[in-house]
Simulated assay, not measured.
Amino acid sequence: MEQEILDTYNKLNSLNVSRETYLDFESFISMIIEKNKEINIISQETAKNSIIRDRHIIDSAQIIDFIDLNQNTTSDLGSGGGMPGIIIAIILKNIKNKMKVNLYEKSHHKSAFLKEVSKKLELKTEIIQKNVFDLKNIETGTIMSRAFKPMPIVLDLVYENFSSYKNLIFFMGRNGKNVFKDSLKNWDLEYVEKKSLTSEDSFLLNIKNIKKKITKN
């Protein structure tokens, strides 16, 4: 692997990600670029190796410390092109953790791509081609939400549709502070905040408990 590529992945050194994992990441990037010629897995403007590596791969991989590794499953809401679900599945494979990653993606074409990637990279995933909002009593370990729906909508979804879970991870962007502040008006949240490795303006939230505040009339 070229030194330039290894230098990019240096951001993940604190997470003890292996060289074999990086090779799988690079295979995944190649598959994204190839499939992007047919359908929009990611925007055409960002469909370059170096941009995908930083904006999608490293950005997704940085949450591995928040994943509850003692559970049977973890779930990616609106997985799209597989970020972060496929990235986490790659890491789990290479650390020999047998947890299954559930990828919720209602698009037929993107679901087919996720299945293709999972088969080629021998990942332990289940692609659930359904609208997660239509499902009830979902049980899982960690829930991941990256570029899916606004935070208030996801909090409602988890509160109403998941019967059990361990924690909920949010990727918060440039306007994340304001969105989070507004969400705290309606929710009591037990959380840990972590600065993003890929953007000065972004941060991660690891939420353990969510409780709806009682509104007074």
Rank of each mutant, 00 (worst) to 15 (best):
G85Y: 01
S163D: 12
V158Q: 07
K211H: 06
M31P: 00
L15E: 12
T215F: 11
I33F: 11
Y104C: 03
N137H: 10
I33A: 05
A47G: 11
F203I: 02
Y9T: 09
V158F: 00
I87M: 04
N137T: 08
N131M: 03
D7A: 14
L155P: 00
V101L: 02
I88K: 02
K100S: 08
K185T: 14
T142Y: 00
I88R: 01
S75E: 10
N36A: 07
A112N: 14
L197H: 07
Y191I: 09
K115A: 14
K195T: 09
S111I: 00
K185A: 15
Y191N: 07
E2N: 15
I33S: 06
S163H: 07
G78Q: 01
V17G: 13
N102T: 03
R55Q: 12
K100W: 06
D24L: 13
V179C: 10
R174E: 15
Y22I: 14
F113K: 00
T142A: 05
I39Q: 10
N102L: 07
K93A: 03
K185E: 15
F113Y: 02
E190S: 13
S60H: 07
S163R: 15
M99C: 06
I214V: 14
S199F: 13
I90K: 03
V117A: 12
I138L: 13
E34I: 06
M31D: 04
M144D: 08
N217W: 15
D54A: 08
F203Y: 10
N40L: 03
L69W: 06
I33R: 07
A47K: 06
Q3W: 00
S183A: 15
N186E: 14
I87C: 06
L15A: 09
I63G: 00
L123V: 04
L135C: 11
S163Y: 05
Q71C: 13
F66T: 10
K195D: 11
E34K: 12
K119S: 15
T142M: 05
I42S: 02
Y104F: 10
G85H: 00
I32N: 01
S14V: 11
G141Y: 00
N40G: 10
S107M: 03
L189A: 02
L155W: 00
L92A: 03
I63Q: 01
N36L: 04
T125R: 03
K195L: 08
K120T: 12
K124H: 13
R53W: 02
N167T: 05
